[in-house]
């Protein structure tokens, strides 16, 4: 029995992603990630705080590298992350479904 055969013996199943769960996880990563990145720059301080990060304001109306902006960023990050996670989950499951049939 080859190693490949043996691993087949352990599990022949293909993972199905729970799109809702992946959306939630990506939302948390996106939201918390943007919040932390913003807060980190604010804590570090300096003459021009977050001059690059605040470019996200182009996509997220109301977002800026401020404490208030960090909360808004959390909201946007979570929304975008959630959408990305959900779409990845749905597309993945769709392709797996097609391939299995």
């Amino acid at each position: 029995m080859t190693k490949h055969d043996e691993s087949e013996e352990v599990s022949r199943a293909i993972v199905k992603i729970q799109a809702g769960v992946l959306a939630f996880v990506c939302a948390m990563i996106g939201g918390i990630g943007l919040f932390v990145m913003t807060a980190w720059l604010l804590i570090k301080g300096g003459p021009k705080v977050g001059q690059h990060l605040q470019l996200l304001g182009q996509y997220f109306p109301g977002y800026s590298v401020t404490w208030k902006g960090s909360l808004i960023g959390f909201f946007y990050g979570a929304i975008v992350g959630g959408i990305i996670g959900w779409i990845i989950g749905k597309i993945y499951n769709g392709i797996v479904g097609i391939r299995q049939h």
Partner: peptide, 25 residues
């Protein structure tokens, strides 16, 4: 439980999903 835990991710499906989302983003 083992069957579920050791189930494989489909590389082609995940690649396609991440590819579509990245491109569209």
């Amino acid at each position: 439980i083992i069957e579920a835990v050791f189930a494989k991710l489909d590389p082609l499906a995940l690649g396609t999903a991440v590819g579509i989302v990245s491109g569209l983003s």
